[in-house]
């Protein structure tokens, strides 16, 4: 029997309560909006990328459920120091984890702390909450003007 604690692990509850990298960056050169019209979750992601394509700083603002806030908080922690390409690859791995079969162990080596979000696989209606920030990140990397959606 799947336990609610598998979804709402203490790490997620903590990140929801005190999200890391929350607020607007003073200095940024990429940004994008993310919006989930189904539940009204809104995110904004700011990126400071240097000439070598490395993410020097990243932050987010917005409101949403615990899964979406914790996911954004964990994501911003994980992205610092990564290149744009590496962050896109990570998105791929994260997306795979969030939608994979339950018996497949998440790739801890690549995803690190982000594996605490693997529990969303058991909750189909909540997968989008976990991936919204990643779609928004991708939109920021690509400088897309329209808000990112999870579709």
């Amino acid at each position: 029997m799947f336990d609610l604690r598998d979804l709402y692990q203490q790490v997620i509850v903590d990140h929801n309560k005190s999200p890391r990298n929350f607020g607007k960056l003073a200095d940024f050169n990429h940004e994008a909006d993310g919006y989930n019209p189904l539940c009204g979750d809104k995110l904004h992601v700011y990126l400071k990328v240097n000439d070598a394509g490395v993410i020097e700083d990243v932050s987010f603002e917005g409101e949403g459920c615990a899964i979406s806030v914790a996911s954004a908080s964990l994501m911003t922690d994980a992205l610092k120091g990564k290149t744009m390409q590496e962050s896109e690859d990570m998105f791929g791995h994260f997306q795979h984890m969030a939608t994979s079969e339950l018996d497949e162990a998440p790739d801890e080596e690549v995803l690190g702390k982000l594996t605490v979000l693997a529990g969303v696989r058991e909750f189909p209606s909540r997968i989008k909450c976990a991936t919204l920030c990643w779609h928004t990140l991708l939109a920021a990397v690509k400088d897309r003007p329209e808000p990112a959606k999870t579709e």
């Binding site: 609610l4 709402y8 309560k17 539940c39 949403g64 909540r126 909450c129």
Partner: peptide, 11 residues
């Protein structure tokens, strides 16, 4: 307070 409606719905 402190619990988003969607989390409430799931729980």
């Amino acid at each position: 307070k402190g619990v988003h409606p969607h989390d409430l719905g799931t729980i």
